[in-house]
Amino acid sequence: MGILDILQSIIPPAMFFSAPLIFTALGGVFSERSGVVNIGLEGLMVMGAFVGIVFNLTFADVFGAATPWISILAAMIVSAVFSLIHAVASVTFRADQVVSGVAINFLALGLGVFLTKQWYDKGQTDMVSQPFYTLDIPVLGDIPVLGPLFFQNMYLTSYLAIILAVVAWYILYKTPFGLRLRSVGEHPAAADTNGINVYAMRYVAVMISGAMGGLGGSVFALTIALNFSQSTIVGQGFMSLAAVIFGKWHPLGAMGAALFFGFAQSLSVISSSIPFLEDVPQIYLLIAPYVLTILALAGFIGRAEAPKANGEPYIKGSR
């Protein structure tokens, strides 16, 4: 088995494991850059997965092959609206943002499973009939070496994740909107003095994180899980949150961290087909992503500085 074959069995699964994490982490970057801690990413993913699956099951006959795409769109919209709860609590009601995020996590799971039981009379939904499928990209897939590695057997959503990461970087660092959003997270009082509506910016940022979390959750559900139950999203949101911090609150950093997590998770799945990994006990591969993250954070990443006003409600007129 050559090195190319090995890479070929690593890269596509790493890409599809990491795509949901990338989406969600990007959302987290927006929210936290505006100064709202979002521990509710997990719940937003749950909501996204739930809506994505339910929409897909309900409308598969209507939209045919376009169903998964419309499903993730629906999931984005619903999750964005759902994240308003977090926005209202943490921006308007000056709630402790961590607490309100925890509430989001509990609420999304409770609602999702409650409604599933309500509508399907059982704890989990049926399998969707219109999930995303892997495909080979025409032309690009025929390139020698690179083609099989990056353009065959891939989900389009994996490319979407990388494209959106670049878009997020552009928005945050190259547009006036991004500058305002970041300034609100660093020094809201100064931003307010300059005529930026702190509350509005934070609302928008949280809703972006809601939409992206919904996207991440629904993509996970429609590429990997294929149904919704209590245990569809277990910890992917927390991993995304880790990616936000690991990536130092930078969209491309978060993407890199999410890719790393995806790669590490895929290792334990595909290890049996890779020569030098097949003798390693499963347990080491299972904990590898988490141990490596801790080592990385303790070692070369160094002290990560969160946005200055992260987690602090802004109270007009206070100093």
Binding site: A242, F246, V291, T293, I294, A298, R303, A304, A306
Partner: peptide
Amino acid sequence: LGVHEVIITIM
């Protein structure tokens, strides 16, 4: 090292 306790405890 100033590493965020939330992320380490999650791991």
